[in-house]
C-alpha cells in the first residue's frame, strides 16, 4: 500500500515536472505576438532573445557544463559553481557551529533555571526579531572583514531557534525522568548528560534544523550584500552580466544544497528520536 503510494507520488511528481518544463520550453519557442515593449524591456535594450527568460533546455545544458567542471578557478569573477557553493557552505557551517556552541549550553541554563529564563528573556525577545542583515553594517564596522562579517550574520541568525528550542526542550523534560536521576543520586553533570540531554535532544535538533534552514536563506542575501565570493555573490554577479541561464541554474543549486542540509539534520534528528 505504502509502496504503491510512494510509486504513485513519484509518478505524479515526474508528470508535473515534465509538464512544467514542457510548457516553459514551448512558451519560449512560440513566436512573439505583442509588439508593445514594456518600460523595463526598453531599459534593458529591447526585447531581444538575450533578455528573455531562457528555456529549460538551455539551463540544463549549462548545468551539465558547470557540473562537469565545478571547481575551476579563472579569476575573481569566474569561479566554478562548486567553489562558490563551497564558500557559502563553509560560512554557513562555521557561523552555525559557533552559534550551536553558544546557544545549546545557554539554552540548557535557561531551561534549567527559571531565574536565568526571566533574566535573559527580555534580551532574547528584543534581539530575536532583528533581521540578521541589519547587523551587517555594524559587523563590517567592528570586524572590518567582509568574510568574517557574513559568518557573524549567520551566527546571529542561527542562535535563536537553537537557543529557544534547547531551553524549551530542557524545561519540558518529564519530571519523572528527572526524579529517576534524583533517586539514583546522579550528579548535576551526569543528570545533564545522561537524562536531560537525551530527553531534550529531539527538540534541540529540531531547533538546529530550523537554524540551518534560516542560515542558508540568509547567506545568499549576505553574500549579495558584501560580494566577493559565495553563491549569493555569484547570483548577483550573473544578474549583472544579464546571464539569466546562470541565474536560474544557481537558484536551482541553492535549492538543492538547502535540501541536502535539511536532510542531514533531519536524519540526525531521527537518530536521537525516541518513542515515549
Amino acid at each position: 500500500m505504502l509502496q504503491s503510494l510512494n510509486a504513485r507520488a513519484l509518478l505524479v511528481s515526474l508528470v508535473l515536472l515534465v509538464v512544467t518544463l514542457g510548457l516553459w520550453q514551448l512558451s519560449h519557442e512560440s513566436p512573439e505576438v505583442d509588439t508593445e515593449m514594456t518600460e523595463y524591456e526598453r531599459l534593458m535594450g529591447g526585447a531581444d532573445q538575450e533578455a528573455r527568460v531562457p528555456p529549460p533546455s538551455q539551463v540544463i545544458g549549462l548545468a551539465v557544463e558547470e557540473l562537469s567542471n565545478p571547481f575551476y578557478d579563472a579569476g575573481p569573477n569566474d569561479k566554478g559553481i562548486g567553489i562558490q557553493l563551497g564558500y557559502s557552505i563553509y560560512r554557513v557551517l562555521t557561523g552555525f557551529g559557533l552559534a550551536a556552541l553558544l546557544a545549546i549550553p545557554l539554552g540548557f541554563l535557561i531551561g534549567m533555571s527559571p531565574l536565568m529564563y526571566k533574566a535573559l528573556n527580555p534580551f532574547i525577545q528584543i534581539l530575536k526579531p532583528i533581521s540578521p542583515l541589519a547587523w551587517m553594517p555594524l559587523a563590517l564596522f567592528i570586524i572590518k572583514d567582509s568574510e568574517t562579517s557574513s559568518i557573524f550574520v549567520i551566527f546571529i541568525c542561527s542562535i535563536w531557534p537553537m537557543l529557544i528550542n534547547t531551553a524549551f526542550g530542557v524545561a519540558g523534560v518529564r519530571k519523572d525522568w528527572v526524579n529517576v536521576a534524583r533517586t539514583h543520586e546522579l550528579t548535576p553533570m551526569s543528570t545533564a548528560f545522561q537524562v536531560i540531554l537525551p530527553a531534550a535532544a529531539p527538540t534541540i535538533l529540531t531547533g538546529m534544523r530550523i537554524s540551518i534552514g534560516i542560515a542558508w536563506l540568509v547567506i545568499v542575501a549576505a553574500e549579495m550584500l558584501v560580494g566577493g565570493t559565495g553563491i549569493g555573490y555569484y547570483v548577483w554577479n550573473e544578474w549583472n552580466n544579464l546571464d539569466l541561464t546562470s541565474v536560474i541554474f544557481s537558484i536551482l543549486m541553492i535549492g538543492i544544497v538547502g535540501m541536502l542540509l535539511d536532510m542531514a539534520l533531519a536524519s540526525a534528528t531521527r537518530l536521537v528520536q525516541y518513542q515515549e
Binding site: W177, V180, T183, P198, V272, Y274, Q275
Partner: peptide
C-alpha cells in the same frame, strides 16, 4: 533528600524511553 538507599517504583514506570 533522595538516596539510593530508597528505591522508588512509580505507577507510570518512569523508564528512560531512549
Amino acid at each position: 533528600g533522595p538516596s539510593l538507599e530508597r528505591g522508588v517504583v512509580f505507577q507510570n514506570y518512569s523508564l528512560l524511553p531512549w
